[in-house]
């Protein structure tokens, strides 16, 4: 994953491709149309911010892209493969090997050390113990938590917890990082740090990032901003001058 920087979506096969995706919750009168028909292509190495009012279907779209949910209608291709035809097991493997998740609420395992949390996806991948340890340590160092390996989530600040979550998401070297309001629970300073981290992963390692955010400040880091409204894509445009992350710093405490 070295191809970075400015993207030209047109001449590469999209890593994610949604066509006419709808998602309806419930039936009949009570049915909620969370997505009403979405077309979205995301190329490898892109950093896409998804914005829009509450209830516009952002999380629903993320869940579908994350293979956690299936569309009511429409197709979803991941690197050309039709995810609609995947069974439960294949979707697990897709999540395990190609996708990394970062949630608003961190979603770390309680009473489990930072290191063990980061090791978890590697365990499921079947990586040997020694290799896994080394990888997880490297990931935690990468997010600036090299000296917090043994801490349990309850002993870490929100910003630190989100760093652990990011380390966990990138430990299995996914193709796409999915972040649903990663800074939603953090103060401005902490949010900036997390955004810098994510932006660096995108710029320096070519990691494809799709991030939902309510804050224009955070969206500024993305090269492309997609606006949702009432289950439809309202606007989809390039951010000509994305905010560049500061050069990498040492451990943050």
């Amino acid at each position: 994953m070295t191809a970075p920087g400015a993207t030209d979506a047109a001449d590469r096969q999209p890593v994610i491709s949604l066509r006419g995706v709808t998602r309806v919750y419930g039936e009949g009168e009570a049915a909620v149309h969370a997505l009403r028909g979405i077309d979205l292509d995301i190329a490898p190495g892109e950093f896409v911010a998804i914005m829009g009012p509450s209830g516009s279907g952002k999380s629903t779209a993320m869940n579908i892209i994350g293979a956690l949910d299936t569309p009511t209608a429409g197709t979803y291709h991941f690197s050309g493969a039709d995810v609609g035809g995947f069974d439960r097991h294949q979707r697990s493997i897709l999540r395990r090997d190609y996708l990394g998740f970062v949630f608003q609420g961190f979603n770390l395992l309680a009473r489990t050390s930072a290191l063990d949390n980061v090791e978890l996806p590697l365990i499921y991948k079947g990586v040997s113990r020694a290799e896994r340890r080394a990888l997880a340590k490297a990931m935690l160092e990468r997010v600036g938590l090299g000296r917090r390996l043994d801490k349990e989530p309850s002993k870490l600040s929100g910003g630190e917890q989100q760093r652990v979550a990011i380390a966990r998401a990138i430990a299995s070297e996914p193709a796409v990082l999915l972040a649903d309001e990663p800074t939603g629970n953090l103060d401005t300073a902490r949010s900036q740090e997390i955004m810098e981290l994510i932006a660096r992963l995108n710029r320096e390692e070519g990691l494809t990032v799709i991030m939902v955010t309510h804050e224009p400040d955070m969206a500024e880091y993305a090269g492309r901003i997609v606006h949702f409204k009432d289950g439809l894509i309202e606007r989809d445009g390039m951010n000509g001058n994305p905010r560049a992350p500061a050069p990498e710093t040492a451990d943050v405490h």
Partner: peptide, 16 residues
């Protein structure tokens, strides 16, 4: 349940 959700999200298979 939440823990199981996290595990499934990060790629645990049904068998695991």
């Amino acid at each position: 349940t939440r823990e199981i959700g996290i595990r499934l999200a990060i790629g645990a298979t049904e068998t695991q």
